[in-house]
Amino acid sequence: MSSAIQSNVVHSGRVARVVIHVVLLIAALFYLLPLFVMLINSVKPLSQILDGNMMSLPHVWTLKPWSEAWSTAQIGVEPTGLRPYFLNSIEMVVPAVAISTMMGALNGYVLTKWRFRGDTFLFGMMLFSCFIPFQIVLIPMARVLGILGIAGTVPGLILVHTVYGLGFTTLYFRNYYAAFPTELVRAAQIDGAGFFRIFWRILLPLSGPIIVVAVIWQFTNIWNDFLFGSSFAGQGSQPMTVALNNLVQSSTGSKPYNIHFAGAIIAALPTLIVYIVSGRYFVRGLMAGSVKG
């Protein structure tokens, strides 16, 4: 009797495991299906797509849609391909990520190691910026950019993204540095290191995991941003996301779906690469920030 129950338990455990695996497999397939559709249709001639079957493998493999999406496709009125906009995005993302991360680190350093009256209140206010819907700030921000004379430019977008990234980067670094031993800062003070020297030589070299977290977070958000890009960018500064939208919207006649798919993948590639390269630090960094200290 008891052995029957035992074998039954083992048996049901195995069944449960199989069920779980099947469910997970279906879920994975479900999530991977769009990527599969995008990938195979981006290497098909348009004629095969228009014939009907989106799911079939290409009869003729071709990279022509990719090269067209990159360099000759119609974006709005110009047949430039996505390339100039890709470069715009890079020009915007790299400084915006670097500046917001550095400033977040400095903020975190000051808020934990050089505390002053009202610092928690200030931090609270900065946190608040994480919860502001960006639509609210569009008009005031447009005004500010106008006053500064950088409306419709890449520096203007850098400023916008830096300002709205600060809340999160400050939060990350503040929590990370809160667990950072203050005695180290004191020792460095006695050794004669000043405010910035302590930051550069002691804190920053020990901030690897949290820098990775901040960089991934900022890179993904800024690269994928459409709202600020479409609101504040001018002709010469539109980022990738806006261009992708224009690519899809601007075609006349039969839509070149294969080019659209290729363009969409190109637009998503950088964030994908950032995740693949530093994803495991991302998880590790989040853990380090939350669990330790």
């Binding site: 031993p181 005695e183 004191r186 020792a187 006695i190 002691i202 070299p205 020990l206």
Partner: peptide, 11 residues
Amino acid sequence: MVFQSYALYPN
């Protein structure tokens, strides 16, 4: 000063 935690710079 010598600190209780030694406060050696880990990096």
